[in-house]
Design a protein around this nucleic acid. Sequence first.
DNA 1: GGAAGTCAAGTCTCG
DNA 2: CGAGACTTGACTTCC
Length: 293
Amino acid sequence: MIRIGYAGINTGLPTSSRTFRLGGYTEQRMLQVAQANVSALENILKWNEENGIHLFRITSNLIPFGSHPVNSGSWKQALSDDFERIGRFVKESGMRVSMHPGQYTVLNTPDKGFFASALRDLEYHSSVLDLMGLDENHKIVVHGGGAYKNKELYLGILKDRIAELPPAIRKRLVLENDELVFHAEDILTLCREAGLPAVLDVFHHEVLPSFPDKDIRQIIIFFGQTWPGARQKIHYSDQDPEKRRGSHSGSVDVHRFGKFLDRVRDLELDIMLEVKDKQSSVLRLRETFPDLK
DNA sequence: GGAAGTCAAGTCTCG
DNA sequence: CGAGACTTGACTTCC
């Protein structure tokens, strides 16, 4: 069975990513916007349930400056009831949610200060899912980080950093191949060694290929071996024809997706679409391919 | 009221 | 070695 979902925002509903400038930060403003965002998140999840969508990525912008030192963390107490209620809804409706810190969260950085920031950011993301009372199947996805002109060395450092993470973070952590530094084979090898699940980003794999003799189905099956007892997750997008190589497209190319689906239809997969029209592509694909969940 | 510039952040490439 | 690209959607400023 294949499930598809979308990331971060629903283009037809109020956003759960409202923010403001750091210069205008006050505790009150942070709590106010955080409350509004959490409420918007609840609406999006309800909409998803009504529309049969059970896979969703919660935006990292849910709590303004959620991992910035300026933020006291008071939102955790202030919103704990809301998070608990939303988490219960997620569990009762059989949904799976995830989070995905951005490009600035770099686990293998040689800079101690940057590493401290990355750790704070993972703690923030982890707190959101913990407050919702969700188990480790609700993942936090990150990229491998930088190569610093010595990819092997910094893959090793990444592995060490992962081993030293607090267990509450590590249990949710999954790594994803990127389009610039760490390709699918790098990530799969690392995840096998580190004991983490690996997310294959199908589009990044096309931009920065590896496994020269293996087709996409075989690679997905390899990645699936890192998800024992859990549903495997992958990411899917197309190239934006107007933009630089690696830029995500506006919507999913239905014909192209169909050809992909023909190769993987019999597998157990959660497919996260990374396209700008968000829920629209999910609905369109479900109409076109009725066996999608 | 729409367009353009700005924003917390780290890494990489280009000149 | 410094500037700009990269990515992202929302905010802010400008006209």
